[in-house]
Each structure stands twice: as C-alpha cells, then as structure tokens.
Amino acid sequence: MSKELTISPFEVVGSPLCVASDDGQKVFERIQAALDAGHPVTVSFKNVTSLTSAFLNAAIGQLYGRFSEKDIKAKLKVAHLAQEDLALLKRVVDTAKAYFKDPDRFRQAERAVLGGSDA
C-alpha cells in the first residue's frame, strides 16, 4: 500500500488566504502528482482562514476531469475544514461532477434561456 501523503494548501500557497485560482492550480498539481504516483492524499486545510470557489474549483474541482469519481472517493480526503467551508467544497465538487459528466448541459441551459427547441 502506498504511503498516504498530506498536502497543506497553507504551505503551498504560503498564506492563510486560499482565494486565487492560480494558487488553487498549484495545489491541484501537487494532488495530481501524488494520485498519479498511487498515493492516497489528505488535503489538510489547517490554518487556512479564507477559501473561495475559484480556488477550490482549480485545486479540487478540476480533479474530476483527470480522475474517476470512484478513484477520488477512494484516495482523496480533506481535513480541518469548518462547516461552512465543507458546504462550499461540497458545492464545488457537485458542480465539478456535473461539469465533467454532462457535456450537453450548456446546450440545455441555452435552450432553457431561449425557451426554444434544439433547432
């Protein structure tokens, strides 16, 4: 069994403010490399004071375009998140699953706005 790795966004970003998409990208690259190497990963948000959807979309949401939902569920954990941040991450994850699962949804959204048919 591969060794479990802990990745700290605070350490990667160098700040308690995990708000920028570019910083989320750096965390994504660390998680991706660890998962590619077969290591289970825990992302520890200890000492992080602020999170945004932009950061989490890049750091976590983007994993669903690279790994299967089953693999992510089996190998990725998060720790030290406050309740409201767990809720934010849950929304990001649900949105990411839908984003990568349903490529036609944009057309559906467009049809809904236009109130018309597929034609």
Partner: peptide
C-alpha cells in the same frame, strides 16, 4: 477547459 466554474 479543465477548471470548472459557475459558482461565484
């Protein structure tokens, strides 16, 4: 592209 969005 690779990063999902639409929540802000």
């Amino acid at each position: 592209g690779p990063i999902p969005g639409g929540l802000g």
